[in-house]
Each structure stands twice: as C-alpha cells, then as structure tokens.
Design a protein around this nucleic acid. Structure first.
Lengths: 122, 122
DNA sequence: ACAACATATTCCTAATAAAGTATATGTTTA
DNA sequence: TAAACATATACTTTATTAGGAATATGTTGT
C-alpha cells in the first residue's frame, strides 16, 4: 500500500529532518552531514531509503549529489510535507536544523547555483 | 519526538485500517476481528500499540472493550486522520472494510448504544 | 463457585530495520 | 595517471517489530 510506504519513510527522526530541510530547497549530502551532524554513511543510507520510496529525487552535479523533493509530489506526500512544516515551527530539533541551514545559505548561493552545477560551498 | 511516534503507529497497514474504521465511530475488539478477518491476538496487540501511543482510547463495557479515537486529538493526529479518510476513498482495502463495517452497523445500533454499555451484536 | 466469553499478556520465533566499519564507485584536479 | 574528494554499497552486528501459540485476566450468567 502506497500510504504505508510513505509512513515508513516518515517514522524515523533523521528522515523527517532531511525532508524538512528539503522543503527549503535542494541540498547535497555533505550539507546534510553538517546540518544533522551525522556520519556520511547514515545520511547516505537514509537518503537512499527516501529515494527508493520516491520521496526524494537525486541528480549528480560534479562530485556532488543533489537531493530534492519531487517537482510534483503526490497529494499524500504533499500533505505530509505541509504537516511537517507546521510541526517544525514549534519543534526545537527542526528549528536548530533550520538555523544551521540558513548559516550555510548565507555563506554561498548554493541553492540558486545548484541547477547550474557550480560547486558546493564547503 | 511526538511526530515520529504518530508515524510509527501509521506505518502498519493493519493499524491504518483500524484507525480508519474508528473514524466512523467506536468499535470493540471482536468487531475488528470480523471486519479485518484477523486473529484476536493480532487485533488486540495493534490496539494496545495504538493505545500506548495515545492514538486511541479504550473503555470497558461489560465483557467488551470499546476503542475510539480521543475526543480532542492533537492537530498532528487530526490531520492524519483526515488524510486517511481521503486516501481510503480510492483504496479497495479500506472500502471493503467500510462495507463490512456498515453490514455490522445495520444489524444493530452498536455505535449508538456503546456509551450506554448495552451489548455487542455478535 | 463454575463455565463461557471477550480481551490482554507472555513467550518464542522470524522478519525488518538501524548503526557502524570497511570498501567501492564516480568525479575532479594536479 | 594518481591523489583527493563526495557519495554509495556490502557486510556485520544489534535492536525493533510482527506473528503465532499458549495462557492469564476480567466479566457475565448459571
């Protein structure tokens, strides 16, 4: 069942944090590592899980893999993402993540340049 | 994290079916058994899981345990329940369950009598 | 008090998922 | 081509979950 698949993806805190960050725009694996402060393998595996279930898409840009939410997400997913953004407002974990995301965003125009495949701001 | 807890409950098909049925009104264990055609122990354990996580409440009425959704569900849950009802409309599994629920509902006024603790219509 | 019934819990086993280590793949740059 | 970098995958171990069998608890009716 499609719905169960989505919920399976959502029932892990790390994956929720990843998805929430992606509602703000595309990101590469190394940024997730920095923001979530988790080892590369953990991030990579959760992203693979989300990707395998169609909750995110990925594109290679040079050395970097850029992950993003699907352009036209199915309504069930769309609803969850909006729910996530609501909940994130009052949840310290998500708020901290957002803070770190913004810090990175200020240091470069990663998100804007992502499509052009320029570079990662590490 | 609260949200993860909810999603953990939702990422099992049987529990989704249970929750969907409960959006139509309170039910006792034996009705779940009949509608879902699952063994008593399976139903009972899933209900216990949902209850432990606060997604359902239970009251004893004579021999029967009546499960229902909490009167004032937190907004995160409320949203999911509405999502569930949406998805259920096009999903054959849920539709079959609903059909069986209605069949039972026609044979007695269980739902209405539940609060009064009359009896189960077995 | 006992039998019948409805439900819950315990115990065991099998399946699934999470986390870590090591290694492999693909890309860029020197 | 080799080194450095970013990411993915394989493998192993551990933890969590689901399912079934048996049993326990609580309730009703005799």
């Amino acid at each position: 069942m499609k719905l169960v698949q989505i919920y399976r993806c959502l029932c892990d805190e790390t994956r929720l944090r990843i998805l929430y960050l992606l509602t703000k725009g595309p990101l590469c694996v190394c940024h997730f590592q920095d923001i979530l402060t988790l080892p590369q393998v953990a991030v990579s595996k959760h992203l693979a899980y989300l990707r395998a279930n169609g909750l995110v898409t990925a594109q290679r840009h040079g050395k970097w893999m850029i992950y993003q939410l699907p352009e036209k997400a199915p309504p069930e997913l769309d609803l969850q993402l909006r729910c996530l953004q609501d909940c994130a407002q009052t949840n310290p974990i998500f708020r901290e993540d957002l803070k770190r995301l913004k810090k990175i965003g200020c240091e470069c125009e990663w998100v804007e340049e992502a499509v052009g495949g320029k570079s990662c701001n590490k």
